[in-house]
């Protein structure tokens, strides 16, 4: 059993998601080769060689891979695929674009966004927007897999000493051309992509009081969210609503202030890794899902938190 792991990187750094996918690859078992594809990736390849448990680093460096366009990246992976039983990648907008192509060209199915490895061919993955967890067995002779990074701990980026080999890059297809990138520049991260979310409910009391939450969010580098009650009360705009009819978030840290925790709200944030709730009502349902909760007036807690963080 051998695994080809497709690394996520930005040209300079190996992304942390790669280390989570590495953990998944280790759980599958067997030798692991990591593929670094891009236009200039020498520095990344060096980092990859340090990662624990990686036997070999394959470097595919070519201008046609600058934007890792799916047509070109999948052709590269296919050119290498023959040697591997598993082709694994952290799930991101590059691999979501390219990996199903790899599967189709290999005439196998793909396991998208796995959250658990049960054996080399049996995996868990969320379906119905995470409202159910499917256990599936791949019946193919090769497994093409994308990994939900948040579900796996990061493997160590140190202690390895992989060999680094350059690989040939197939010619670009020419059917698809990059035109432009327009990356979001924002002081505050986007709600659905943020690692930390600070959220307020009706208990915040007014539009003006939300400024307090903003200060905390800025302090933490967090996105700002709200419950439907806060949106209905006119404190914040609709696009900040977290919940069943709003945005679904799964940050590392979710801090809820003055949110009672109606099930519609919980549906939007229950996958957060750590939930903190502050509410003065000790029966607030949100306490049933919070990892840490504080029964207190949020107007006492917020200034203290902002000061002490």
């Amino acid at each position: 059993m051998t695994t080809l792991l497709i690394a996520e990187h930005n040209g300079q750094q190996l992304a942390p998601a790669t280390l989570s996918a590495l953990t998944a690859a280790q759980q599958i078992g067997g030798d692991i080769a990591m593929l670094i594809a891009g236009a200039e990736v020498t520095a990344v390849a060096e980092q990859a060689a340090q990662c624990a448990g990686v036997a070999q680093v394959l470097v595919a460096q070519d201008d046609s891979l600058r934007y890792e366009l799916a047509e070109n990246l999948s052709a590269l992976i296919i050119s290498l695929a023959g040697d591997y039983s598993h082709i694994v990648a952290p799930s991101n907008s590059i691999t979501k674009d390219a990996m199903p192509r790899v599967a189709a060209l290999l005439d196998v199915g793909q396991l998208s966004d796995i959250t658990g490895v049960l054996s080399a061919t049996q995996f868990q993955r969320p379906i119905y927007a995470g409202n159910a967890i499917a256990t599936v067995t791949s019946l193919d002779d090769k497994q093409v897999i994308t990994v939900r990074a948040a579900s796996f701990a990061k493997a160590s980026a140190q202690g390895g000493s992989a060999t680094v080999t350059s690989v040939a890059v197939p010619a670009g297809s020419g059917l698809s051309t990059w035109v432009a990138d327009e990356l979001t520049v924002s002081e505050r991260p986007q709600l659905t992509a943020a690692d930390r979310v600070v959220s307020g409910g009706r208990g915040v009391g007014s539009k003006e009081n939300f400024a307090l939450l903003e200060s905390l969010a800025d302090k933490l580098g967090a996105a700002l969210g709200a419950s439907r009650a806060a949106v209905d009360a006119g404190f914040v705009s609709n696009d900040m609503q977290v919940g069943q009819t709003g945005k679904i978030v799964a940050p590392e840290l979710y801090m809820a202030f003055g949110i009672s925790g109606a099930i519609q709200h919980l549906a939007g944030m229950k996958d957060a890794k750590v939930i903190v709730a502050v509410n003065k009502d000790e029966d607030a349902p949100i306490f049933q899902v919070a990892d840490y909760y504080l029964v207190a007036d949020l107007f006492d807690v917020l200034p203290e938190l902002i000061e002490k963080l």
Partner: peptide, 18 residues
Amino acid sequence: SMRLDRVDVPSVRSGGVK
């Protein structure tokens, strides 16, 4: 290509530390 072995309810969070 795939066999669906089983489907589970996602694990429910249990209340945490006050």
